[in-house]
Amino acid sequence: MQEIRVTNYPEVLVDRPTHYCPGCQHGIAHRLVAEALTDLGVVDKTIAVSSIGCSVFLYNYLNLDTVEAPHGRAPAVATGVKRARPDAVVFTYQGDGDLASIGMAEIMHCANRGERVTVIFVNNTVYGMTGGQMAPTTLVGQKTTTCPGGRCLEREGAPIRMSEIIASLGGTAYCERVAVNTVKNVLGAKKAIRKAFQYQLDGKGFSFVEVLSTCPTNWRMTPVAANERVASEMIPYFPLGTFKDIAATEGA
């Protein structure tokens, strides 16, 4: 009789407690990135670009060469990194405030140029680190510390669907929205993230994975209730799926 361990956390995932709140799914997204880089055998040629927000500490959990970008500028910094080191695997890891608000110009043009970089976009509909303010992806009616009565469509506009926008840009090779609220979705997210990196390695163009995620603390919910909200409120507005895949188009 021999006991084997089913769970194998990749070595690049640093064995230390995270600073994330209970139920925050950044940890799952970190793990999926770590698994993808490990599966593809590219850990030692990867350069990460961390952004501003809760995930600025990405470098504490992934043992990678990492540069910290100013708020929203990760795609510009990644462009500089990739142009300087075209053989490196380069990715940014950004939240919704960072990517879809202050960094909108940088993400759009990085995608449009078709920079051979991968962007992991964690959308939890709120500014986490600064205390739960309204984000560009905050759902209509969702209460935050800067829209205490709930986001108002007339006053604050509709939440931005980034994957749909990114998919419309010429340089985008692969664009997918995933969630990590169920085992099935986590496995799908894993596949998407791996594929995004594979496209970069193949020089196909810009690759983008939006990960719907929870922020139980700022949603004022228990982790379990927050996770249920992903299916009940987020996915209906932010549908999961592949929004662009040039390989699929090429094959057609």
Binding site: R73, V77, G80, R83, R85, A105, E106
Partner: peptide
């Protein structure tokens, strides 16, 4: 670049390399 903001941040990225 799309702006001077982006140009300077690209410089930051290349400099890090």
């Amino acid at each position: 670049a799309e702006s001077e903001v982006a140009a300077a941040n690209m410089l930051l990225g290349a400099a890090a390399c």
